[in-house]
Nucleic acid binder design. Sequence first.
DNA 1: CACATTCGAGAGCACTGCTCTTGACTCGAC
DNA 2: GTCGAGTCAAGAGCAGTGCTCTCGAATGTG
Lengths: 229, 229
Amino acid sequence: MAAGSIRARVRAEMIDEIKAIARKHLASDGANLSLRAVARDMGMVSSAIYRYFPSRDDLLTALIMDAYNALGAAVEQADDTVEDRADLRGRWLAACHGVRRWALANPAEYALLFGSPVPGYAAPQDTIAAASRTPLTLIRILEDGVSRGLLSDPGPDSLPDGVRTDLDRLRESTLPDVPSALLARGTVGWIHLFGAVSFELFGQLNNVIEAREEYFDHQMRLAADLVLG
Amino acid sequence: MAAGSIRARVRAEMIDEIKAIARKHLASDGANLSLRAVARDMGMVSSAIYRYFPSRDDLLTALIMDAYNALGAAVEQADDTVEDRADLRGRWLAACHGVRRWALANPAEYALLFGSPVPGYAAPQDTIAAASRTPLTLIRILEDGVSRGLLSDPGPDSLPDGVRTDLDRLRESTLPDVPSALLARGTVGWIHLFGAVSFELFGQLNNVIEAREEYFDHQMRLAADLVLG
DNA sequence: CACATTCGAGAGCACTGCTCTTGACTCGAC
DNA sequence: GTCGAGTCAAGAGCAGTGCTCTCGAATGTG
C-alpha cells in the first residue's frame, strides 16, 4: 500500500507538472495548446504524455475543471471579504470585481471557460458542478437578502411562462428561497457581468474605453440597481 | 482594360468561391479552418489558394470583415422594420433580436467575431469601421430619441471622470448629440446584449434555460428599462 | 528472486500552414 | 501574328501537429 501510494504520488506530481506547464503555454500561446511543446518543456517525448492524459482534450478538460474551481474560489473569497453580510450591494460588487480580477490575471483560462467553444470538444458532465460555483455565489447573495428580509419579490415582472418553468426547475435543484422574478434578475446580472468581462478581455473595448476599471465598476453599479432593486 | 477586367472578374469570382467554401467549413468544423480542406473542395491544390490569399489569417480577416458587415446589415434592417420611428423601445428590442437571430443563423461567424481571440491573430485597422456598424445602430436609436425630445439626460449618473473622458472622445469621432450618461447606458445595453447572445451560443445556458427566446426577450426588456429609462 | 505493471523512447501515420520551383496558359503590345 | 509579360495551378518539400504502436528498461509486488 505504501509503495503503491508512492507510485500514485509520483504520478500525481507528474500530472500536476504537466498541467502547470500546459497552463504556462496556454497563457503565452493561447488556446491552441501543443502537447509536443509541453512534452519538450518537460524533457519528455510527446508519446509519454499519453501515459497521463489519454488525449489532448482530456488535458484541456482537466485545465477547465481547475480553472472553474479557481474562479469559483476567487469569487467566494471576494464575497467573504465583505464583513457586513447584510450589505448585499457591497457583496455583489465585490463578487463582480472578483470575477474581473481573476479573469485579468488568468486571461487564457478565462477564454477557455467562456470563449468560443473548441470545435470537436464537448464539456463532460463533471464540469457543470465546478461551473456552477460562481453563479451560485452570486445567487446566494440574493438568497441571503431574502432570508434577511432585505429583498422582496420584485413582482411578477411579466416573467414569461417558459422562463418561469425553467427557473422553477433550477430552484428545485439548487436554491430554494429566491422568488423566480428575483432569480431571473440575478441571472441577468450574471450574464451582464460575464459580458462585460468578456468584452474587455476579448478586445472589444480597444480604442473605445481606456478607463477599464472605472467603466467596469460603473456598469456593475448600474446593473446592481437592476438586480438588487 | 476590357480584358483586364475579365481577368479581374474571374479573380473576384474565385475569391468569392473560396470565401463561400471557407464559410461552409467554418460552420461545420468550427474555427480551426483548414486551407487544404478548402482547396480540396475547390478541386485545387493547397498552394493555389495562396494566389488569392497571402495567408490563412488574411482569409480569416476577409471572412471577419464580411461577417461584421452582414451582422451590421441585419441589425440595421431589423431597426428599419419598426415603422413608428418614435417607438424607441420597439426599435431597441428589434435591433437586439436582430443580433440574436443573425448569431443563431451564423454561429461560427459570430464566434469568429466575438469569441476568444485567435492567438497569433491581430485584427487589422480596417475591421473597426465594419465592427462599429452594429453598436452605431443602437446608439443612433438613442440619438433619435434625444433629437425627438423623447430621451433626456439621465443625469450625472455619478459617471467616473475617466469614463466621461472616454465617452467624450468617442462622441467626437462619431455621434454628437447623446449625453455622456445616456451614451454610457447605451454601451452597457450593447455589452449586455452581446453577453446574452454569447452565453446562449457558447453553451453556458445548457441544462439551465430551455426557453431561450423568451428568456432573451425578457432580459432585453429589463435592460431596455435601464437604457431608455 | 521472479513476475507483472508501469513508464519513457522512438518510429511512423495522416494531417496542417506555408514556400519555392516548374511548366502551362492568357493577355496585350508591337 | 508573334512574342514577352503576367498569371495561374501543380507538385515537392519543410517543419510542425495529434495520436498509435512497439520495444526495452525500470520499478514495485508477490
